[in-house]
């Protein structure tokens, strides 16, 4: 091993262009993609071939796993539920988080940094802590087992992230644009809605994407708060896991199905989100 990983990077940067760079990117990408490739290829394998050694990468693919999960599992319902919950969470997080973030970015008041810090620290909350009281609360208002219950708890984490992200984004936006556009004096809300928001589109897209990813993947909350008709894809994926015989091929084929929508969304939004994370940091 070389002295320090950072040192390594610097040496790479110096070598710079061409071969070296390509090789390093290739190695990292292989590391990041290898398990995904295993997952996707396994979903096209016969059950008996999953653990063949040496591992098989080229083989006669079968669709039987996909047929099984579409035939035996309510995968359309799970996908729809996952979509409802993650889109609902995203919309709610943005509705709650973005106006607050704009105000936190544009207004000065005492205790502002403390406030932003506390919002960010919501992310530190261990899920197990709030699970039980939250469930009792949802039950008492009759929301247990509904999509809404999961949306409400996912939004706690996602709204916090949205605020954090958007405060940085709004702060990085020059205030002069808003002032210039409203020489004749717009209302505060109008400035926010008609001028700041459109300019902040990349930031909004990024916040939305992160929120989608987080709630699309949520397992623990969905497990504790949904009922069978509102169950999500991750729960479905896990239900292929028998104790004695794991349905590896079924699990991976459902997982392949579950990745696709998000991957498409991410590809579609890619021009926004790298730009969108250009924030100014917490002030």
């Amino acid at each position: 091993m070389m002295s320090s990983p950072l040192g390594q990077h610097l040496r790479w940067a110096k070598l710079g262009s061409g071969m070296m760079r390509t090789i390093i990117i290739a190695v990292l990408v292989v590391f990041l993609l290898f398990p995904v490739i295993w997952l996707v290829t396994t979903s096209f394998k016969e059950r008996i071939d999953v653990f063949q050694l040496p591992p098989q990468w080229i083989f006669q693919p079968t669709m039987s796993n996909f047929e099984y999960v579409f035939d035996k599992k309510p995968i359309e319902m799970w996908t729809l539920n996952s979509l409802i919950i993650s889109v609902g969470t995203t919309i709610l997080s943005l509705l709650l988080g973005v106006p607050a973030a704009y105000t936190l970015a544009r207004r000065k008041f005492r205790g502002k940094s403390l406030l932003i810090t506390s919002i960010l620290l919501i992310r530190a909350l261990p899920p197990v802590v709030i699970l039980i009281p939250f469930r009792v609360l949802m039950n008492s208002v009759g929301l247990i087992g509904t999509h809404t219950a999961v949306i409400l708890i996912d939004t706690i984490y996602n709204a916090a992230f949205t605020v954090w992200l958007m405060v940085g984004y709004f702060e990085a936006m020059p205030v002069e644009i808003e002032e210039a556009a409203c020489v004749d004096g717009c209302s505060y809300f109008r400035t926010f809605r008609a001028i700041a928001l459109p300019l902040a589109t990349p930031g909004l897209v990024t916040a939305a994407l992160f929120s989608l990813i987080l709630s699309w993947n949520d397992f623990l909350f969905a497990l504790s708060l949904t009922s069978p008709p509102s169950a999500t894809l991750p729960l479905g994926i896990l239900s292929t896991f028998g104790m004695l015989s794991v349905g590896w091929t079924y699990m991976t084929s459902m997982c392949t199905i579950a990745i696709l929508p998000l991957l498409l969304i991410a590809l579609f939004l890619q021009k926004y989100y790298v730009q969108g994370l250009t924030f100014g940091g917490v002030k």
Binding site: I132, R135, V136, N139, I144, G145, L223, S224, S227, P228, P229, A231, L235, L238, S239, F241, M243
Partner: peptide, 25 residues
């Protein structure tokens, strides 16, 4: 009869939470 298929730990967690918080799921 709608069957909700769950892994071992998930099953236990779901039914126990159901019984203890009287949610009748």
């Amino acid at each position: 009869v709608e069957v909700d298929v769950l892994g071992y730990v998930e099953l236990r967690e779901k039914v126990v939470l159901d019984y203890t918080t009287n949610t009748k799921q």
